[in-house]
Write a protein that binds this DNA or RNA. Sequence first.
DNA 1: TTGACGCGCAACCATTTGGTTTCATATACT
DNA 2: AGTATATGAAACCAAATGGTTGCGCGTCAA
Lengths: 130, 130
Amino acid sequence: MSASPAKHDVFQAIADPTRRKLLELLSEQEMAVTTISSHFPISRTAVSKHLRILSEAGLVKEQKIGRETRYRMQPEPLRELQSWLAYYERFWENKLHALKRLVEGEASSNDQLSGPRLAPDNHRSTTKQS
Amino acid sequence: MSASPAKHDVFQAIADPTRRKLLELLSEQEMAVTTISSHFPISRTAVSKHLRILSEAGLVKEQKIGRETRYRMQPEPLRELQSWLAYYERFWENKLHALKRLVEGEASSNDQLSGPRLAPDNHRSTTKQS
DNA sequence: TTGACGCGCAACCATTTGGTTTCATATACT
DNA sequence: AGTATATGAAACCAAATGGTTGCGCGTCAA
């Protein structure tokens, strides 16, 4: 895994409200670009750019079918968000936390409620200080 | 509830890696600005700006003590993220989903696993199309 | 084969973002 | 009083963002 410049990460991708709407729309069904953009007040090109950002973050996947490009949602990257969030849940959860983690154990794999809960941002965290 | 222009929301606030680090740091203990910025390679002023953005999103709270300003983390706004994410969990969860939701029920209040799961972005979603 | 459709790309633009440096002010120390 | 510390505010900057319009190209349908 040395490739993938990954210019945009999940956090950035979902920061924009239009992009969240896009994701929501695509979660219901896959769609072609023009169809998608008919749901938004901005130009098709603008929508297309947003889609590319989502794509770079791995949140959508495109598939060319004839002259159209279908986009479908790809939820996996959201797990990163989830695990980031998991760290902070302890600040408002207290009661049934342990049980929940236990139940959920099968999902995260590296989330074993074992040690002192490592830091959240150790994900890829380029921390690009420009 | 007519006040609070809330220029920055949670999604935007956590989009920046530095801000996430900031949050992580402050989750351990409250700290004054200069102390905080000693942990970062950027200027104190820059850190201060990030703190203000976090503050606008409600993720940190400041308290003036003499000549210094202490910042502490405020996890509540992350619930919005959590509930946003909850919508998408159904796309990768399937097995123990119901149980988990049930266990967690006491935390979310509007998250009763009842109806057809309303749309995620209905939160405040200014959807500011600039 | 001639359009019409679907889409990406390039160029351009205004605004926002993440930084910096400098300055002003309030508080603490001696 | 005079100095050092802590922080915010202002002005400025380069780069990133979110948009737009126009163009070119592949694909589908007459």
